[in-house]
């Protein structure tokens, strides 16, 4: 299958007072038509910056894409002129963000906000755009869509606002939807609803989805393939079943053991079990050592790991990992 969007060796840097921070350090991944790619990692591992770099939404200064490419329909998005990238934003590739409370404009009606990309990209009249906006509100299952067209974001709950964000992002029927932690700010029941909604719409519209999250539970629910990121790099990539069955990077393993499991609690007759956490924190990107970035937190680290950074290797078909350890972990 030919990928619809492909990142090759993407590098994004920030200039800070304590020096240059390589937030994205040579990341490559792709997403196919109709597929959901999960991108997982702790806060600060560069997953959001990677996705913002795709549409060049990194504030510059201080951020800058310094290398690599983002291929979409034969064009490198890191190189196209500004007015062309604006034709792609919201039309070919859309984004939804983490904070539904602050991501909508409080001064503008919901209908007008959904209409904006329709007027901009499809050249619809204001009236046609509002009609289409109403269809979109129906599509994201907001009841009483007609009256919500003239409603304002502050009258809505967080879940409804995220639905509006999704309606807005999908209004022009984009080929790729980048969802940057779309459920993180919502409570658990609403999280589930939003994930199901995204999945349903994806099946209906055939959109490719890049789902960025720190929550492996979310990934397990929606993703076909997963990329695990750590300290600005991709450390593992595999299809969802392989990843959960045979993780090849210690970081992935630790992320999995940090998820509470109902079967374990049941096995222990409801006795609370202490969750294992990953010791330490993500290293400051401005203070990266030589060798593997996960070295300090890894239980399997050898001397080689401290000296030499592991390269990304195909451990089995379609399963890539950057780790010197050869044996799979259990």
């Amino acid at each position: 299958m030919k990928p619809v969007l492909e990142l090759k060796n993407l590098q994004t840097q920030f200039e800070t007072r304590s020096g240059i921070v390589r937030a994205v350090d040579g990341v490559s991944y792709h997403v196919n038509h109709g597929e959901t790619l999960g991108v997982v990692g702790e806060s600060g591992c560069g997953k959001s910056v990677t996705s913002l770099s795709v549409l060049r939404l990194i504030p510059n200064p201080p951020g800058k894409i310094v290398g690599g490419s983002v291929m979409f329909e034969g064009e490198d998005l890191t190189q196209v002129p500004d007015h062309l990238i604006r034709n792609i934003r919201g039309k070919e590739i859309s984004m939804i963000f983490q904070e539904p409370m602050t991501s909508l404009n409080p001064m503008m009606t919901v209908g007008n906000q959904i209409s904006e990309p329709l007027i901009r990209h499809l050249g619809l009249s204001k009236k046609d755009a509002l009609d289409r906006a109403r269809e979109m509100l129906d599509l994201v299952q907001i009841p009483d869509s007609k009256s919500w067209l003239s409603g304002y974001p502050h009258q809505m709950s967080g879940g409804m606002r995220q639905r509006v964000m999704i309606a807005m992002a999908l209004a022009c029927d984009p080929k790729v939807l980048i969802a940057d932690e779309p459920t993180t700010a919502l409570d658990v029941t609403i999280q589930g609803q939003i994930l199901i909604l995204i999945k349903e719409l994806q099946e209906k519209l055939g959109t490719a989805v890049i789902m960025i999250t720190h929550d492996l539970g979310v990934v397990a629910e929606v993703a076909d393939r997963v990329v695990v990121m750590y300290a600005g790099r991709k450390v593992e990539e595999a299809d969802i079943h392989t990843l959960f069955e045979r993780p090849r990077h210690p970081y992935t393993v630790r992320l999995m053991t940090a998820i509470p499991r109902l079967d374990r609690i049941a096995a222990a007759n409801g006795a609370p079990e202490r969750l294992t956490e990953i010791p330490g924190t993500v290293p400051l990107l401005s203070e990266l050592r030589s060798g593997c970035a996960f070295f300090d937190r890894c239980a399997f680290a050898s001397e080689q790991c401290g000296k030499e950074a592991p390269v990304l290797e195909e451990k089995s078909r379609g399963h890539w990992a950057a780790c010197w350890n050869e044996a799979p972990f259990q």
């Binding site: 792609i88 934003r89 919201g90 909508l104 404009n105 904006e116 990309p117 901009r120």
Partner: peptide, 26 residues
């Protein structure tokens, strides 16, 4: 510097529409 400005930019709106309609209005 607020999130909604990023949202407006992500819709593909022109620079000045983002500044005036979404920025100035707020």
């Amino acid at each position: 510097s607020q999130d909604m400005i990023r949202t407006a930019a992500a819709k593909g709106l022109g620079k000045w529409r983002v500044f005036m309609v979404h920025g100035l209005r707020n």
